[in-house]
Design a protein around this nucleic acid. Structure first.
Length: 578
RNA sequence: GCGCCCGUAGCUCAGCUGGAUAGAGCAACGCCCUUCUAAGGCGUCGGUCGUAGGUUCGAAUCCUACCGGGUGCGCCA
């Protein structure tokens, strides 16, 4: 049940019955204040000009025509011609009952589309660092939401497992192995390993040449190089998987489709473009001139697809990935989460891909950009010594900090339980802090804010959830199959019910606009409304009539289920006690 | 130089396709625990929505210019 959609459809229907207003836009909005009801229709003012009537007169005509008798009280016209819709408490109560009885919370599945989500995509030459956090968790959350809405989501971890730096790395690895070290030991710290290799590359005579030679051999399919590369990749992937595990992100080996996988397709992609006649040779390289992105002087944008020496670039790989996803995976949507700096590149890629026939017309190509993670000082987030922060270390620190904060509070929970809670709170905090900000610009990473346990944070949401669970324990109800007659009498109950029914609207927004922060805001508002309700409307206290108690338990249960579902879609875990 | 993103309360951020007195959280201050987890609730304080024009019945939102910050612009990814 999508209330917004339902009300809007009724207004559309009404407009179609009004002479001259057929097909006019039906701007419905959520009301900003309770006295204006739950929704407001703002179409009358715009129609005034077209129909040459006073907006309030038009509003009256619309009110006469619109049929909302089953769900709303009489409509009010206010101000210049706003039409306020006040939903009837009994109708809301019935919707709450319906949602509570449905495992999907009365959210219908949409017509299934194939949606490719490109997320995380770490560079395997190094260990995952903070720069990979946003793509990983934003992508994971969006993928989960789209999946929940009924779509067929294909996750693609476009790992950077190919490129010139691997020559240097496998050369170094070969030496290590010959010194009878085991690969996993040698690669236990990828950052150190990379640094060592880089130093040799820069300083050691002959090493750089050997590294370059290895790149050529590797790309040429040399078995020995390939075997070394394979070992390196496997260990590095293992590191990534540990991070995904800690992060509670739904990414597995099956989702990996690294750059190397596209290697065999690259010549074909360039050939495709040549066939379409959009590639030209310029300064020895194969390039596409993009007139659509020309500057003021008419100079077209340049997109190189093959180097002058004959090698391919990341642009070529991205085009190959595009073709594979659109044609092989049959994607209706391709969604790519990378940092904002690559926005121009993907814009170029889409134009080239469409002209070059690498993207089916029906396939959308969407880039979900985001900014960098900055420290409290507004500069790129680094360790105290100025190094890159490893993601694994960051996550460990989050859990550790959460544990300390939890230990400061007296608790009757066992050590094991406390550790488990610290893990969920720490990881949840770090994810929520990031997910709750949409900015395509950079964002400030601040331990104190995200772990403060107060305000708009994961711990607050987890606390709200745990608090509701304790009510159910106390009431001794079975949350699996509880149902009750819902009666909405108080303002706090109505506000809460309305918020509950807007869950689907929020998920649609997340799916369409790739904005998980909308879901975060929603869950925070839901939790806040619950707390307000909880203070104002007693549930288990003495003197509460049985019907009221049952009704409020039902309301609380739907809040609990909605929060659990919402947090799960964000990849944030909940707990029964806190 | 050109392109893209951004500029909202002291700080961190919302504000959907233009709509009624611009919202949260933190910080500050004041209340509320013999009563369902006070990791909570209620309230107060706090904003020329970068600046100047324009479009509109109506602009934080759309258009133009400028100022300020970030980022990208041919063989790295």
């Amino acid at each position: 049940m999508n209330v917004f959609q339902l009300v809007q459809d009724r207004f559309k229907q009404a407009l179609s019955n009004i002479e001259g207003a057929e097909g006019a836009p039906a701007p419905l909005a959520r009301s900003t204040r309770p006295e204006f009801g739950e929704y407001q229709f703002n179409g009358a003012m715009a129609l005034a000009k077209i129909l040459k009537q006073k907006p309030r007169d038009i509003a009256e005509t619309i009110v006469e025509q619109v049929n909302l008798d089953d769900m709303a009280d009489s409509l009010e016209i206010a101000g210049p011609g706003f039409i306020n819709v006040k939903l009837r408490p009994e109708w809301l109560a019935a919707q709450v009952e319906t949602a509570l009885a449905d495992p999907r919370l009365a959210i219908e599945k949409e017509l299934a589309k194939k949606v490719v989500v490109d997320l995380s995509s770490p560079n395997l030459a190094k260990e995952m660092h903070v720069g990979h956090l946003r793509s990983t968790i934003i992508g994971d959350a969006v993928a989960r939401v789209i999946e929940f809405l009924g779509h067929d989501v294909i996750r693609q971890n476009h790992m950077g497992d190919w490129g010139t730096q691997f020559g240097m790395l496998i050369a170094h690895l070969q030496d290590k192995l010959q010194a009878s070290e085991v690969a996993t030991t040698a690669l236990s710290d990828l950052e150190d390993f990379y640094r060592e290799a880089k130093i040799r590359f820069d300083d050691e005579q002959g090493f750089a040449d050997r590294a370059r030679e290895y790149v050529v051999k590797l790309q040429g399919g040399d078995a020995e190089c390939k075997a070394l590369w394979q070992q390196f990749i496997e260990v590095s992937i293992q590191h990534s998987e540990e991070v995904y595990e800690k992060l509670n992100v739904k990414l597995t080996n099956d989702d990996i489709m690294g750059e190397s996988a596209y290697n065999p397709m690259l010549p074909g992609v360039v050939a495709d473009l040549k066939e379409q006649g959009i590639v030209v040779e310029d300064q020895g390289a194969q390039v596409v001139f993009i007139e659509e992105l020309a500057n003021k002087d008419g100079e077209p944008s340049v997109f190189i697809v093959e180097k002058s020496g004959g090698g391919f670039l990341y642009s070529t790989t991205d085009l190959a990935a595009m073709k594979y996803r659109s044609f092989e995976l049959d994607a209706d949507r391709i969604i790519i989460f990378t940092d904002a700096r690559q926005a121009y590149h993907f814009k170029q890629a889409e134009i080239v891909g469409r002209k070059g026939g690498l993207l089916r017309e029906e396939t959308t190509y969407e880039h979900g950009p985001f900014g960098m993670m900055l420290g409290k000082d507004g500069k790129p987030f680094k360790t105290r010594t100025g190094g890159t922060v490893k993601l694994a270390d960051l996550l460990d620190e989050a859990v550790e900090r959460a544990g300390k904060l939890l230990a400061e509070r007296n608790s009757d929970l066992s050590a094991d339980e406390q550790n488990e809670i610290a893990r969920k709170v720490g990881i949840g905090a770090i994810k929520y802090a990031d997910l709750s900000k949409n900015r395509t610009t950079d964002y400030i990473f601040d331990w104190d804010t995200m772990l403060s346990f107060e305000g708009d944070t994961a711990p607050y949401l987890q606390y709200a959830f745990a608090r509701i669970q304790s009510i159910f324990r106390k009431a001794g109800i079975n949350t699996e199959d509880f149902s009750a007659n819902v009666v909405i009498a108080e303002a706090q109950e109505k506000a809460l019910a309305m918020k509950l029914l807007q869950f689907v609207e929020v998920m649609n927004a997340v799916s369409q606009n790739l904005t998980p922060h909308v879901l975060c805001t929603y869950l925070y508002e839901l939790a806040s409304l619950f707390m307000t309700f909880y203070e104002a409307c007693p549930i288990l206290k003495d003197g509460v009539p049985e019907e009221t108690k049952q009704s409020r338990l039902a309301l609380s249960l739907l809040v609990s289920k909605t929060m659990k579902q919402g947090l799960d879609l964000l990849g944030i875990e909940t707990m029964e006690k806190m």
